[in-house]
């Protein structure tokens, strides 16, 4: 059986000047992300939640272990294949929205589709539809500097969805938003996961948001344990 994302014996340590072993962040982590499920990873700051998410997305490499995406060992992919996988199979959302400042909201959403080689008209139509779904029909031609934090994050969600990916990896997507905006972003994100049969892996400090997910995983003492939902 293949999973959208499967981690096998993942360890990660960072080199330090005073230790040959380095600073251990993750130790022998194993988990599978089930299809059409939302999973939240919680844990204290500095425990390695973001690092784990980056390893899941193929952005960072583990010191040991294997990452399988749809059964494919991503360590064996070259730059072009890895880029294609990130482009078509995974949608990323971060706390800092990471939009391109010179691009309008519409262009920002179009970028992954253009990278995928879709024609411009199709990219524009899909991006417009997604921005409408996010309630940003009046903000399409605004630059990031002209958008509020919540609007930027909704643009980032639209961008993550443009290529209709199987998996969405979200790192503190509501971390920098006020309560009202955070709630709206949570709703949008969970909606798109449910309505589109997508898999969501979420890193958050927000327990209320985590509780709305199907599974909660706790990262503590370098290892991952499943929390039972109350």
């Amino acid at each position: 059986m293949t999973y959208p994302i499967e981690l096998k014996n993942i360890s990660k340590s960072f080199p330090t000047a005073d230790s040959k072993l380095g600073l251990q962040i993750l130790n022998n982590i194993n988990f599978c992300l089930n299809s059409n499920e939302s999973t939240a990873i919680i844990g204290k700051s500095g425990t390695g939640k973001s690092t784990l998410l980056q390893i899941c997305g193929g952005l960072d490499k583990p010191t040991e272990g294997t990452v399988l995406i749809d059964g494919i060992d991503i360590s064996k992919l070259n730059d072009a294949k890895m880029s294609e996988l990130r482009n078509k199979r995974i949608g990323f959302i971060f706390q800092a929205n990471m939009l391109l400042e010179d691009f309008t909201a519409l262009e920002n959403v179009m970028v992954p589709a253009m990278i995928a080689g879709k024609n411009k008209a199709e990219c524009i139509k899909n991006a417009e539809d997604l921005l409408k779904q996010m309630g940003l029909e009046d903000r399409m031609n605004h630059y990031p500097a002209q958008l509020s934090g919540g609007e930027k994050q909704r643009v980032a969600i639209a961008r993550a969805l443009i290529n209709n990916p199987d998996v969405i990896l979200a790192d503190e997507p509501t971390g920098s938003l006020d309560e009202e905006n955070a709630k709206e972003v949570e709703d949008r994100l969970l909606d798109v996961v449910k309505s589109g049969s997508r898999t969501l892996l979420l890193v958050t400090h927000n327990m209320d948001f985590a509780k709305r997910c199907n599974r909660i995983l706790l990262l503590k003492n370098h290892t991952l344990t499943e929390e039972k939902k109350k």
Partner: peptide
């Protein structure tokens, strides 16, 4: 930053 972001979104180094 923009180059890193483009790569994050799936652009190849060649592009």
């Amino acid at each position: 930053r923009e180059i890193a972001l483009a790569k994050l979104l799936g652009s190849t180094d060649s592009n």
